[in-house]
Design a protein around this nucleic acid. Structure first.
Length: 731
DNA sequence: GAGCTGTTCTTTTTT
DNA sequence: AGAACAGCTC
């Protein structure tokens, strides 16, 4: 920060802060980063390599637009994929400009929270069938509602245990006007019933928030007959973080939000797409570039990892040019072989203890693995060794039965049309009962319009003492949890009601809604009103370290969770064939597994250690090192004293011959496929194909070995040409 | 409803 | 490879 800011800050008008371009911060950026910050194309996507200062550029861009281009923060929409990312952006902005008010950053947040805010303020939700008082559904709630409707209407629906997934996956088919579900049941009858019921109960699912706001933004644009009026409450600039992670719904929301005039600036890394299995599967980075006709800039320079790690990472890069490093070669990447997962955990524990004795902080160390189930053995062994660790499993209020129930009570109170929740509250096996029914119904008139409400008043009003069973053994704990929650909620809601001039019940509604979206994480620290902290119950109690080490813990997490984080020292365990990569059935999955490994290794700043075991307990996992280990140039690897160099290189005794050509072939296939995909995107020439089982479809890509085609109702399928299953139809 | 055969999915997680 | 389910037969 500059030393002049103190003098200039007090002045009103246009010169509150010096121009961003003249700050030390801006000067410290590299040329690529500067170019991205200063770019003012109508649409621009920044293809940011891993560790290249993506968020720094985004922050810089916001400050540049704000300070130099005089664009009010209120006129920007800054969209992120997670709440954590949104918090980080606002936090980093506040470091530069401490007087930023919450009102100024209304448009900063996840896609869903920004959509919610617009639905609550400017968009005419009534036109879509809801009222302004609508509430936000919990993700599981929609499935429950669907099950109720199935029972009520006697619908024949298969695979009810997978209903949630089916509802999501087949929605597009239904929208497209397809007659029947792929399982030939009555799933499609459910969609209109569900939509109607949600309107009736005046609540929206997460997907509804995006769908409805998108729809209303589109109608608004049409109704205004152009940009003139439709652009009134649209942002001047839309900035998107981690754009490669957005799905089709979010893309449409972006498009609708942009309207005619807003400029769009998105940063992302196509090499870090690791969640396509839950979304569309398309590479959103290039899709968005194409859709918006965006200019593409790059950030090639990595500031995080040492040269060995980056050279290895470059072998796994699927898009763009090589990652450029900034550091000279330091430690090599350590590869280890252990007998089984237990041995691996034991050695890891010892190694971590040694590192710690030599002065490495526990907090600088992380262990990554492919499956959640792999953490159990680490927990056990680390616990026994007295290593403080932290498992990244999110705990929400839903995991605390009494608060889960209380939220439902509040939800019915601020939305009496929610009959589904009302039934859930009354029928709860532990806290249920008829006593609260009329209280919830009359909440708005009896409590909701008071100027200030205390936690104690709510406790009495809802008759919570009886509901929590005062004679039960868990009463004291439940009561303190409930009072704690209510106190925090009342503090926030009273303040909100006062400052906005709205009612208490309105504030409670917003509180409950934002809690639903915010997930109510359990980690400490106050972020938003909806973020209630709950004491963590994790392995630290085993830790031999006393008090001072409380925040210094070894982090244990899945490779997926590691995305976006960085650590001095990273261990990736179970780098076995069949685990990393997990056995995949198609090429796309294989590519994603590679990106996942790429994400994992690029989290490490200085030390990276990969290990595999000879005797994996799990089914389907082979006692061989991952192919990925053989893809890393040998001179970067340090096999320690395990003497297993031979087996990693040759493939542990299986058909050692032909490995190298296998590898080359695989790499060529991937490259070809990428090239073909790009070419296909550039000239959309439709080639029709036919398959015995899937019927007619459209050719997506092909190379000398594989052919990929898309079939209505079945999605994309890949075939080996040699099998001749696919017939190309020439018109 | 037991017993059989065939099919589909299994992991990873945010909002 | 194996679990979970659907749909069939008796």
């Amino acid at each position: 920060m500059s030393e002049e800011t103190g003098e200039t800050r007090r002045m009103n008008g246009s010169h509150q802060l010096e121009e961003y371009q003249h700050t030390e911060e801006f000067r410290r950026l590299n040329e690529y980063q500067k170019a991205a910050v200063l770019d003012e194309s109508p649409a621009c996507v920044v293809n940011a390599n891993v560790g290249s200062g993506k968020t720094t550029v985004l922050i810089g861009k916001i400050m540049y637009l704000h300070l130099d281009r005089k664009i009010p923060l209120e006129n920007m929409a800054v969209l992120t994929f997670t709440n954590k990312a949104a918090d980080e952006i606002v936090e980093r902005l506040r470091k530069i400009k401490p007087d930023i008010t919450p009102a100024q950053v209304q448009g900063f947040g996840t896609f869903h929270s920004v959509a919610l805010r617009m639905l609550k303020s400017t968009l005419p939700v009534e036109e879509a069938g809801w009222t302004k008082e609508f509430t936000v559904m919990d993700p599981d709630e929609e499935t429950d509602l669907a099950l109720e409707l199935i029972a009520e209407h006697g619908l024949k629906v298969k695979y009810k245990n997978r209903l949630k997934k089916r509802l999501e996956q087949e929605y597009q088919n239904w929208l497209a006007g397809k007659e029947e579900s792929r399982y030939r049941d009555e799933l499609f009858h459910l969609y209109p019933l569900l939509a109607e019921e949600k309107k009736k109960q005046n609540k929206m699912s997460f997907a509804d928030l995006l769908r409805v706001s998108t729809e209303l933004l589109q109608i608004k644009a049409e109704g205004a007959g152009g940009a003139a009026d439709g652009g009134a409450d649209r942002p001047a600039w839309i900035l998107v973080d981690e754009v490669q992670d957005s799905d089709a719904l979010q893309l449409e929301f972006l498009e609708a939000l942009r309207g005619e005039s807003a400029k769009i600036f998105a940063v992302g890394d196509p090499n870090q797409v690791i969640y396509s299995w839950r979304g569309t599967g398309d590479n959103m980075f290039f899709l968005i570039k194409h859709r918006f006709g965006a200019k593409e800039l790059t950030l090639p320079v990595n500031y995080r990892s040492n040269a060995s790690i980056l050279t290895a990472a470059n072998r796994f890069l699927q898009f763009g040019n090589k990652i450029q490093g900034t550091r000279n070669e330091e430690h090599r990447i350590v590869v280890r072989n252990y007998y089984d997962p237990f041995q691996e955990a034991e050695y890891l524990a010892e190694k971590i203890q040694t590192l710690h004795r030599k002065g490495k902080r526990y907090g600088e160390i992380a262990v990554f693995y492919r499956l959640q189930s792999q953490s159990a053995i680490l927990e056990k062994v680390f616990g026994r060794h007295g290593i403080p660790y932290e498992l990244s499993v999110k705990k929400t209020l839903k995991d605390i039965p009494v608060l889960n129930w209380l939220i439902k009570v509040l939800r019915v109170s601020v939305n009496p049309s929610d009959t589904q929740m009302e039934a859930a509250v009354l029928k709860d096996p532990v806290y249920g009962g008829e006593s609260a029914a009329c209280r919830m119904e009359r909440f708005s008139e009896e409590i909701g319009n008071r100027p200030a409400v205390s936690a104690g008043e709510l406790f009495t009003y809802f008759g919570l003492r009886e509901a929590l069973h005062p004679s039960s053994s868990g009463y004291a704990e439940d009561e303190s949890l409930v009072m704690d929650f209510l106190e925090k909620m009342c503090a926030s809601c009273n303040k909100e009601a006062q400052s906005s001039g709205g009612s208490f019940s309105g504030a409670v509604r917003e509180f409950v809604n934002s809690s639903a979206l915010y997930g109510m994480k359990t980690d400490a620290g106050e972020k938003t009103p909806g973020d209630i902290s709950v004491r963590e119950e994790d392995g630290t109690e085993y830790g031999g370290e006393d008090g001072t080490a409380a925040l210094e813990r070894v982090k244990l997490m899945t490779l997926h969770v590691s995305k976006g984080l960085e650590f001095d020292t990273v261990f990736i365990i179970g780098v076995n064939q069949g685990l990393i990569p997990l056995r995949c059935k198609n090429f796309e999955q294989e590519e994603e597994e590679r990106r996942l490994f790429f994400v994992g290794i690029t989290r490490a700043e200085n030390n990276l250690e990969l290990s595999w075991y000879t005797n994996p307990g799990e089914h389907g996992v082979i006692g061989e090192p991952s192919r990925y280990l053989r893809m890393i140039p040998e001179q970067l690897l340090d096999y320690g004293n395990t003497g297993k160099q031979e087996s990693v290189r040759s493939g542990a005794g299986t058909d050692g011959a032909g490995r190298k050509s296998d590898l080359q072939q695989l790499r060529r296939q991937v490259q070809d496929q990428i090239r073909l995909k790009r070419e296909a995107a550039q000239k959309p020439e439709v080639v029709r194909v036919r398959h015995r089982k899937y019927g007619e479809g459209i050719l997506v890509s092909e190379d000398e070995m594989m052919i990929e085609a898309e079939f209505e109702g079945y999605g994309r399928k890949q075939f080996l040409k040699a099998f001749g299953e696919i017939e190309i139809l020439h018109s």
